[in-house]
Design a binder for these strands. Sequence first.
RNA 1: GCGCUCGUAGCUCAGUGGAUAGAGCGCUGCCCUGCGGAGGCAGAGGUCGGAGGUUCGAAUCCUCCCGAGCGCGCCA
Length: 553
Amino acid sequence: MIREKIVSLVSTALNSAQDAGEIPHFVSPEITIEHPQRIEHGDFSINLPLRIQGLAKMKAIDVANILQKHIEPYSAIEKIEVAHPGFLNFYLEETWVCDQITSIVNAGDYFAFSDIGNGTNVQIEYVSANPTGPIHVGNGRGAAIGSTLANVMDFLGFNVQQEYYVNDAGTQVSIFGRTLYARYAELFGKQIQIPDNGYPGAYIIELAKNIQEQYGDAFLELVDNEPNPELGKIGIDLQLTNIKDDLSAIGVDYDSWFSEQSLMVKGGAYDTSLKLLMDAKLVLKREGAIWFNSSDLGESKDNVLIRSDGQPTYYATDIAYHYDKFLVRKFDRVIDIWGADHQGHVSRVKTALQTVGGDPDSLDVLLYQLVNLRRGDEIVPLSKRAGEIVTLRNVIDEVGADAARFFFLSSSANQTMDFDLELAKSQSDENPVYYVQYAHARISSILVKAEEDSLFKSNPKLSLLNHPSEQLLIRKLLLLPEILENVIADLAPHHLPHYSKDLATAFHSFYTQCRVISEDKELTAARLILLQASQIVLAKTLGLMGISAPRKM
RNA sequence: GCGCUCGUAGCUCAGUGGAUAGAGCGCUGCCCUGCGGAGGCAGAGGUCGGAGGUUCGAAUCCUCCCGAGCGCGCCA
């Protein structure tokens, strides 16, 4: 890539200047390259002279001048300028820029591919909401972030597994079972109190009706004075189906639905990881419960593994779950995506993971801050009447999956987010989703027309694309590879929607300034290739975000 | 009280230690003989919460203070 080429040119120039005795010898820091903010400063900028002025005991501007002299000429570079207080600014050759469109069009859907993942086995686990109820708006944010990250990593050569951890064991599930039983019994005219900490939401009534239709009164009788556990299990399965439907409606598809229950089999991950903790002599019985002495390992406090009623805590099963990810399934790297309310859990999971033999540095926990819903200036409370919440499905139904994903992705994960339903829903120029999609539709429409009129030529003169708006557009297209690398390096998919807006702006601006189909056959053919390249990059960007790229709107 | 995250234009948000801090919406004013106006161009609008510090250079790193959200259960 051109970035690496420039860095290596500068590195060589430094060596050569040092060998010539014009700059003293020292170990150079890593050379960084960036895009200047202002186009007058060129396409790339190197700040090395400023960073080594101390080492060289010279003025940065002098270092820059010497380096400039020692940089070998290179065909893609038109000129190199020294700028105060000591930058080296690189300007790309216009014809080189034009020629890059060919590589985009040739690469097609593989443009921006580079195998930086190198087959690394990565698991991305996200959403994993309790299957005891519908998923809410906050889960939608996790879903958009997780699946987009998975798309990008998959594209860049990682071997990605997307997983949903199904909490089908534990206290919440049994409370769910009792609630469901109460609703189910109601349908047969029995009055049974919903448990105090139960689920008052109306969706449970729907589940109960569904079960009544399929199974009749099969679960009405108590088993050992408790609701039949089979009822709860069926209820969980039905609710899980609803969750799958909702996630699929927002373009999320998992490779794996991992059952918490499966950790609990005799001799399984739960038994093994607990034994490892005990072998480490970090487990003690106290006040009737079994504790992990995590404060001995620098945690702020000890944590309970097994409650005094004999039930394992969420923490204990999560240790087992992470043991399973790393030591049983042997992922090279795991990315967990959690809501920020789980922040306190991160450190102690890593500590426990290390104790059971995993590498905490291979575990990334990406926390996303909470979502506030708004409708214009009005705040929409996330929980409505008792037990009712604003579900992800409500939002998708109102604004559509494309807009929902775009908005969820738009802010960085550690920024609390305001999701404006009114804005997301509006089919107007206020809405950035349509702005980007519109660019794609516009391009498609012109390409169709050009196809009909047979305006394509086999070897168009791309060097004709020298209008400033054309040059700007091509430069934006060429940014995608870097954007994707940044998305992965920072685990920050929010770069994508911003890039897509930028790209759409560059296109719309080009469109109004340069007419594509004109009397000039040569220029028309060249601009059509530019359109093809733009369509490829826009579609790619939208596709990675899980957003459709419509040909008509 | 302790921990994590955040504080950037009226609003919603970008901003890999770099040069004159950006975008969208909103506001003001322009641009349709022609490929899709869901568009384009221009303008107004900022003590980057505050104070110190590190650095050639700080919105960005460090310390303190102020403010907001979240967490600190034998919940998940």
